[in-house]
Design a protein around this nucleic acid. Structure first.
Lengths: 247, 247
DNA sequence: CGCAGAATTGATACATCTCAAGCTGGGTGG
DNA sequence: CCACCCAGCTTGAGATGTATCAATTCTGCG
């Protein structure tokens, strides 16, 4: 089943992810080249953007919404291996198919580049390749942090860690000053959270309830989270308080 | 405590990792540039190459031996997040410190590049940057595979998966024809295996014993592994039989 | 209103951890 | 050359955290 993405258009110069995506370092000249090979596609919440093993004839950036990368074993066990937020890159230059399912968890818009010409640009315009390397290294760091979560943290710490990660990325995206408190919408169902954390959805539900009961978080509806004290949450996540930022 | 690496020298042209490391794509000209900024260091089994948080004034390639990247929580829980085999790259251009401990698990030799000049080369010689991007993308894929192992596999599947990974990389390195059987040395202690897999060393020991008892593997001593039937082992690992190779 | 997907809650099962005791093999010093 | 030592490993018994199975209860929406 092919996803039925709709086509829309937009100018790179007032693109909301202009300064964070793979095109972040591009000059006017290079942006013009990108404009020629790009097209937009939208997907609805729940739609599969690419199936694991399928041919992918594009790479691209997530412009808005949230998507996930996940792997499924033959017996159905699923592990999320990537959480794609606006500005994140999808696909790998030089590779034919996707080893993962890419699924929209909210309505999303993607800025796609035709693969062949994009790969050609990788050779000729260093700014694209440089930025992609930088982003890939960041993703690798995030994956390694995630591995610590999966391998060594308790269910409660896992939930707290996930809330920290989403909250941090959300406030970075909106360029909020960092304050002690924090509020954001959870873009994931309990099941998706479970797939992120290597838990069952029941365990996720129980631990979220526990954090709520103890006042670490406040729920407004099922999905809107309010964190009155971010340090408290980070303590629950088992992280060092400094956040370990080394540039 | 600074590691007391000894200095040795070698010519790039008969370097054992010449065709797989970050320098793989370099021409003679570029290799000469690299030769100027490189130096070798050796570390003994058990030595810490870099401490988490410490300044790193080099990046480099692992020439021989095995090293690990790991993260430790305040209470001592440890998760390995990288297993470094010959030709793997250590360090991140543009970053001052290491967020991970780098530890030699066997005697190792590293080919180090002074960071500043290496970063300069990244800008000027596209072949280095291209190869590094390729290697980083491969590592990201490996990390994602590993996340599935950590999040969703049983202890027995974890052990089988680890044996597959080490066996596969070992035979790739020695360019063996792929046969049904396989033999290799485990470069990791039971504890290191536990840190890799998010288990305790006791559980590792029990599962290794179980696989041995059932004839999936044959142990010669504690560390030498013989896999009579690789397909059988991959079945135990819960992987698809094809190995999921998508280039 | 009433349905369906999402989430919560409860009771029980089970895999892995924890704590504890012993084993093994290679190196060392007497 | 042997006895000892010790890190690495194995094995056992019991504790515990999370999964599993099974009901309800929310919540948004046609």
């Amino acid at each position: 089943m092919q996803p039925s993405g709709e086509t829309i258009t937009q100018d790179c110069f007032d693109c909301p992810i202009r300064h964070r995506a793979v095109c972040a370092r591009c000059e006017t000249e290079e942006l013009n080249l990108l404009e020629e090979i790009k097209y937009y596609r939208s997907f609805e919440a729940g739609q599969t953007v690419v199936w694991s093993g399928d041919k992918m004839d594009f790479v691209g950036s997530l412009v808005s919404g949230v998507a996930t990368l996940s792997q499924t074993m033959e017996d159905g066990r699923t592990q999320m291996v990537g959480l794609l937020l606006p500005s994140d890159f999808v696909g790998r230059p030089g590779r034919i198919g996707s080893p993962y399912d890419v699924i929209a968890t909210t309505d999303i818009v993607m800025c796609c580049f035709r693969k062949k010409p994009f790969e050609a640009m990788m050779q000729t315009t260093p700014h694209v390749a440089q930025r992609l390397l930088e982003m890939t290294l960041d993703e690798l760091d995030a994956a390694r942090e995630w591995m610590l979560v999966l391998g060594r943290k308790t269910a409660r710490e896992k939930i707290a860690s996930l809330l920290c990660i989403i909250g941090r990325r959300d406030s970075a995206l909106r360029m909020n000053a960092r304050s002690r408190s924090l509020a954001f919408d959870l873009p994931l169902t309990r099941e998706a959270m479970a797939d992120y954390l290597g838990l069952t959805l029941e365990t996720v539900s129980r631990q979220v309830s526990a954090l709520k009961r103890e006042g670490v978080i406040v729920l407004q509806g099922k999905r809107h989270i309010l964190v009155p004290d971010l340090d408290r949450l980070m303590e629950e996540a088992g992280d060092d308080s400094d956040g370990g930022l080394l540039v």
